[in-house]
Design a protein around this nucleic acid. Structure first.
Lengths: 205, 205
DNA sequence: CGTTACCTAACTTGCGCTAGGTAAGTAATG
DNA sequence: CATTACTTACCTAGCGCAAGTTAGGTAACG
């Protein structure tokens, strides 16, 4: 009954527990979405009670924010390494994106997290609505200014870089949906490579 | 108190009520997703009580099925007219798809319905999971066999039509997400037109 | 007069969250 | 070095609400 009496009690330090909760919440959010994830599920998974979890994140929205911030960092790192890589010409650029897609295929959990949360957040009253609008704007700006910026003059001048960016992100998002739904029938990397090939050929003309 | 005593009672025939409920449920599903839609919300919107709605759809899952089937028909019609249109060459084909995207922009509710439900249904225990897997397979097959089939010999032979189809659907889905999230910043039709132009140019080579 | 279109009432379950504790760890003090 | 005092990491109990659903009726309709 009483968890204190039954066995030796182990108290964990805040940082470790927080991280464990975030990792677990990530999994649950990606599997059930924000609405579908409950404290009781999460609490059981990390071997705590519900108020035990609430001790770390005082509400469900705080938990969501925590999860998003937590991964924002990781994504930022991946993204930075992409920015720092050498890009002398257009094929270089798009082969980087191909690598990104290939990497994404190895972390279906995280991809599902963002795919599920983004779609959920289309509703204007969703707690992550503003976050995702902002995030997409930021990412698009990053592509236009940094990612493409360096070799802007090698690209056909009649192409709107903002539209091109929207297209690239759309392909990634859309592929992820079909791939997550039916991985056996959808070879995300192959299709992206096809896209990449088509685009590169076009841009170099 | 008693709805029977208060005013004249109007009984509606089953078909009308059913349709009204389906239309309203469509709106609610698209605004709040499946999980986020409640009977009390729906009941109020159609001026019934919750058991009143349950009289037509004995459970929430039946309601969801009803909504999906209801729109399956409408979509099928739109799709058929696309198939029957004249397609002599590749540009004809892709201009049809452009029209489709442009039409979609006029019915954000329906688009949101499917975008939200598809993403929600990525979870394998979602009641519409199998439905959407099946639907995507069916649509892809339709593209490969019917839509492209007629002018297959005019397309570069090194292009895998299945992959091309996945790409086209991905672009549409991905654009819809960004557009629904931030319509002011994302001109769905313009980006699709860009995509269309690039693809056509490539396929005709 | 039977069927159908609803209603009222209520049950059950599970949700997010609060109140108020207890014991383990940490730091300050004698 | 031992005692005390404080802080932190949890716990138990339970509240209030809303969800989906059921039972059993009543009155309008064909």
């Amino acid at each position: 009954m009483n968890k204190y009496n039954s066995t030796t009690k182990k108290k964990r330090v805040r940082r470790d527990r927080t991280e464990e909760i975030l990792e677990t919440a990530t999994r649950l959010f990606s599997e059930h979405g924000y609405q579908g994830t409950t404290f009781s599920l999460l609490a059981e998974a990390v071997q705590l009670t519900e108020p035990g979890v609430l001790h770390y994140f005082p509400s469900k929205i705080h938990l969501l924010q925590g999860v998003l911030e937590y991964h924002e960092q990781k994504n930022a790192e991946r993204y930075l390494s992409m920015l720092q890589a050498e890009k002398k010409n257009i094929p270089d650029l798009f082969s980087l994106l191909e690598d990104l897609v290939a990497e994404n295929e190895k972390i279906p959990g995280l991809i599902q997290l963002f795919t599920v949360l983004v779609s959920e957040s289309i509703r204007s009253d969703h707690p992550a609505h503003d976050y995702f609008i902002e995030r997409y704007r930021r990412v698009r700006e990053g592509y236009v200014n940094q990612f493409f910026g360096e070799i802007k003059d090698k690209i056909r001048p009649d192409v709107d870089l903002n539209e091109l960016t929207i297209l690239i992100l759309a392909v990634m998002d859309g592929l992820q949906i079909q791939w997550l739904l039916d991985p056996k029938k959808v070879d995300m990397v192959a299709v992206y490579r096809l896209f990449s090939k088509i685009i590169v050929e076009y841009l170099e003309n």
